[in-house]
Lab assay of single mutants.
Amino acid sequence: MQIFVKTATGKTITLEVEPSDTIENVKAKIQDKEGIPPDQQRLAFAGKQLEDGRTLSDYNIQKESTLHLALR
Protein backbone atom coordinates (compact mmCIF):
# COMPACT_ATOMS: atom_id res chain seq x y z
CA MET A 1 0.00 0.00 0.00
CA GLN A 2 1.06 3.58 -0.44
CA ILE A 3 1.53 6.05 2.40
CA PHE A 4 2.81 9.61 2.47
CA VAL A 5 5.38 11.14 4.77
CA LYS A 6 5.36 14.91 5.13
CA THR A 7 8.68 16.39 6.21
CA ALA A 8 9.22 19.50 8.33
CA THR A 9 10.21 21.37 5.16
CA GLY A 10 6.82 20.61 3.62
CA LYS A 11 8.10 17.99 1.19
CA THR A 12 5.95 14.88 0.78
CA ILE A 13 7.60 11.48 0.31
CA THR A 14 5.61 8.54 -1.06
CA LEU A 15 6.44 5.10 0.35
CA GLU A 16 5.33 1.59 -0.60
CA VAL A 17 4.67 -0.33 2.64
CA GLU A 18 2.71 -3.23 4.12
CA PRO A 19 0.43 -2.92 7.17
CA SER A 20 2.71 -5.47 8.88
CA ASP A 21 5.80 -3.26 8.40
CA THR A 22 7.30 -1.94 11.62
CA ILE A 23 7.96 1.73 12.18
CA GLU A 24 11.65 0.77 12.07
CA ASN A 25 11.13 -0.60 8.52
CA VAL A 26 9.41 2.61 7.49
CA LYS A 27 12.32 4.68 8.85
CA ALA A 28 14.73 2.50 6.84
CA LYS A 29 12.68 3.20 3.69
CA ILE A 30 12.83 6.93 4.43
CA GLN A 31 16.60 6.60 4.82
CA ASP A 32 16.81 4.87 1.40
CA LYS A 33 14.89 7.73 -0.23
CA GLU A 34 16.15 10.74 1.71
CA GLY A 35 19.42 9.68 3.34
CA ILE A 36 18.19 10.58 6.84
CA PRO A 37 19.49 8.13 9.48
CA PRO A 38 16.61 6.40 11.33
CA ASP A 39 17.94 7.50 14.72
CA GLN A 40 17.34 11.11 13.65
CA GLN A 41 13.77 10.47 12.52
CA ARG A 42 10.69 10.98 14.64
CA LEU A 43 7.47 9.84 13.01
CA ALA A 44 4.00 10.86 14.15
CA PHE A 45 0.49 10.00 13.03
CA ALA A 46 -2.73 11.57 14.31
CA GLY A 47 -0.74 13.48 16.92
CA LYS A 48 0.95 10.36 18.35
CA GLN A 49 4.65 9.62 18.17
CA LEU A 50 5.25 6.20 16.60
CA GLU A 51 7.47 3.65 18.34
CA ASP A 52 10.02 1.62 16.35
CA GLY A 53 8.86 -1.83 17.45
CA ARG A 54 5.20 -1.33 16.55
CA THR A 55 3.63 -1.96 13.14
CA LEU A 56 1.62 0.33 10.90
CA SER A 57 -1.48 -1.76 11.59
CA ASP A 58 -0.94 -1.29 15.37
CA TYR A 59 -1.56 2.40 14.76
CA ASN A 60 -4.38 1.78 12.29
CA ILE A 61 -2.36 3.45 9.52
CA GLN A 62 -4.06 2.63 6.24
CA LYS A 63 -3.39 3.27 2.57
CA GLU A 64 -2.81 6.88 1.66
CA SER A 65 -2.40 7.89 5.31
CA THR A 66 0.01 10.77 5.90
CA LEU A 67 2.70 10.48 8.57
CA HIS A 68 4.65 13.47 9.81
CA LEU A 69 8.43 13.36 10.00
CA ALA A 70 10.40 15.49 12.43
CA LEU A 71 14.17 15.37 12.83
CA ARG A 72 15.85 15.33 16.19
Score class of each variant (00 low, 15 high):
Met1Phe: 09
Gln2Leu: 15
Gln2Arg: 05
Gln2Val: 15
Gln2Trp: 07
Ile3Trp: 00
Ile3Tyr: 01
Ile3Thr: 01
Ile3Arg: 00
Ile3Val: 10
Phe4Leu: 08
Phe4Asn: 05
Phe4Glu: 04
Val5Pro: 00
Val5Gln: 00
Val5His: 00
Lys6Thr: 13
Lys6His: 08
Lys6Arg: 12
Lys6Asp: 07
Lys6Trp: 11
Thr7Pro: 07
Thr7Ala: 06
Thr7Val: 12
Thr9Pro: 07
Gly10Ile: 04
Gly10Asn: 13
Gly10Ser: 09
Lys11Ile: 13
Lys11Trp: 10
Lys11Pro: 12
Lys11His: 11
Thr12Cys: 03
Thr12Ala: 05
Thr12Gly: 04
Thr12Arg: 06
Thr12Tyr: 15
Thr12Ser: 08
Ile13Gln: 02
Ile13His: 04
Ile13Arg: 02
Thr14Leu: 15
Thr14Ile: 06
Thr14Asp: 11
Thr14Ala: 09
Leu15His: 00
Leu15Glu: 00
Leu15Tyr: 02
Leu15Asp: 00
Leu15Ala: 02
Leu15Arg: 00
Glu16Pro: 06
Glu16Thr: 14
Val17Lys: 00
Val17Arg: 00
Val17Cys: 03
Val17Leu: 11
Glu18Gly: 11
Glu18Phe: 15
Glu18Arg: 11
Glu18Cys: 04
Glu18Leu: 15
Glu18Ser: 06
Pro19Tyr: 08
Pro19Leu: 14
Pro19Ser: 08
Ser20Trp: 11
Ser20Thr: 09
Ser20Asp: 11
Ser20Gly: 08
Ser20His: 11
Ser20Tyr: 14
Asp21Cys: 04
Asp21Ala: 12
Asp21Lys: 02
Asp21Pro: 01
Asp21Met: 07
Thr22His: 14
Thr22Trp: 07
Thr22Asn: 09
Thr22Val: 08
Ile23Val: 13
Ile23Lys: 01
Ile23Tyr: 02
Ile23Arg: 01
Glu24Thr: 10
Glu24Pro: 04
Glu24Phe: 07
Asn25Thr: 14
Asn25Gly: 09
Asn25Met: 04
Asn25Gln: 11
Asn25His: 11
Asn25Pro: 01
Asn25Phe: 14
Val26Tyr: 00
Val26Ile: 13
Val26Ala: 02
Val26Glu: 00
Val26Phe: 02
Lys27His: 02
Lys27Gln: 02
Lys27Ala: 02
Lys27Met: 06
Lys27Trp: 02
Lys27Pro: 00
Lys27Asp: 00
Ala28Glu: 07
Ala28Gly: 04
Ala28Tyr: 14
Ile30Gln: 00
Ile30His: 00
Ile30Lys: 00
Ile30Glu: 00
Ile30Leu: 14
Ile30Tyr: 03
Ile30Ser: 01
Gln31Met: 08
Gln31Asp: 11
Gln31Gly: 10
Gln31Thr: 10
Gln31Ser: 08
Gln31Lys: 04
Asp32Thr: 08
Asp32Ile: 14
Asp32Pro: 02
Lys33Ala: 13
Lys33Gln: 07
Lys33Val: 14
Lys33Ser: 09
Lys33Met: 15
Lys33Leu: 10
Glu34Leu: 15
Gly35Trp: 04
Gly35Lys: 09
Gly35Glu: 06
Gly35Pro: 03
Ile36Ser: 12
Ile36Pro: 04
Ile36Ala: 05
Ile36Phe: 13
Ile36Val: 10
Ile36Asn: 05
Ile36Tyr: 14
Pro37Gln: 06
Pro37Thr: 07
Pro37Arg: 14
Pro37Ile: 07
Pro37Lys: 09
Asp39Asn: 08
Asp39Gln: 08
Asp39Ala: 10
Asp39Glu: 08
Asp39Gly: 13
Gln40Asn: 13
Gln40His: 14
Gln40Asp: 15
Gln41His: 03
Gln41Pro: 01
Gln41Met: 13
Gln41Cys: 03
Gln41Gly: 03
Gln41Tyr: 14
Arg42Val: 13
Arg42Ala: 12
Arg42Pro: 02
Arg42Asn: 10
Arg42Met: 13
Arg42Tyr: 11
Leu43Phe: 03
Leu43Asn: 00
Leu43Pro: 01
Ala44Ser: 10
Ala44Cys: 04
Phe45Arg: 02
Phe45Thr: 03
Phe45Asn: 03
Phe45Gln: 04
Ala46Trp: 06
Ala46Thr: 07
Ala46Asn: 05
Ala46Phe: 07
Ala46Tyr: 14
Gly47Asp: 11
Gly47Leu: 05
Lys48His: 10
Lys48Pro: 02
Lys48Tyr: 15
Lys48Met: 12
Lys48Phe: 09
Lys48Thr: 09
Lys48Gln: 15
Gln49Trp: 05
Gln49His: 11
Gln49Met: 13
Gln49Asn: 14
Gln49Lys: 06
Leu50His: 00
Leu50Thr: 02
Leu50Glu: 00
Leu50Gly: 01
Glu51Phe: 04
Glu51Asp: 11
Glu51Ile: 09
Asp52Pro: 04
Asp52Cys: 03
Asp52Gly: 06
Gly53Phe: 12
Gly53Ala: 12
Gly53Thr: 08
Arg54Phe: 14
Arg54Gln: 08
Arg54Met: 06
Arg54Leu: 09
Arg54Cys: 03
Thr55Phe: 12
Thr55Gln: 15
Leu56Tyr: 01
Leu56Pro: 01
Leu56His: 00
Leu56Arg: 00
Leu56Glu: 00
Ser57Leu: 15
Asp58Gln: 15
Asp58Lys: 04
Asp58Arg: 03
Asp58Thr: 12
Tyr59Val: 03
Tyr59Phe: 06
Tyr59Thr: 02
Tyr59Asn: 03
Asn60Leu: 15
Asn60Lys: 05
Asn60Arg: 15
Ile61Gly: 00
Ile61Tyr: 01
Ile61Phe: 02
Gln62Leu: 09
Gln62Lys: 15
Gln62Trp: 14
Lys63Ser: 13
Lys63Phe: 10
Glu64Asp: 07
Glu64Cys: 04
Ser65Lys: 05
Ser65Ile: 09
Ser65Met: 08
Ser65Gln: 15
Thr66Cys: 03
Thr66Ser: 10
Thr66Leu: 10
Thr66Arg: 05
Thr66Gln: 09
Leu67Gln: 01
His68Val: 08
His68Gln: 15
His68Ile: 05
Leu69Ser: 02
Leu69Glu: 01
Ala70Gly: 08
Ala70Leu: 06
Ala70Phe: 07
Ala70Ser: 05
Ala70Trp: 10
Ala70His: 07
Ala70Thr: 05
Leu71Ser: 15
Leu71Trp: 10
Leu71Gln: 10
Arg72Thr: 06
Arg72Met: 14
Arg72Glu: 13
Arg72Lys: 13
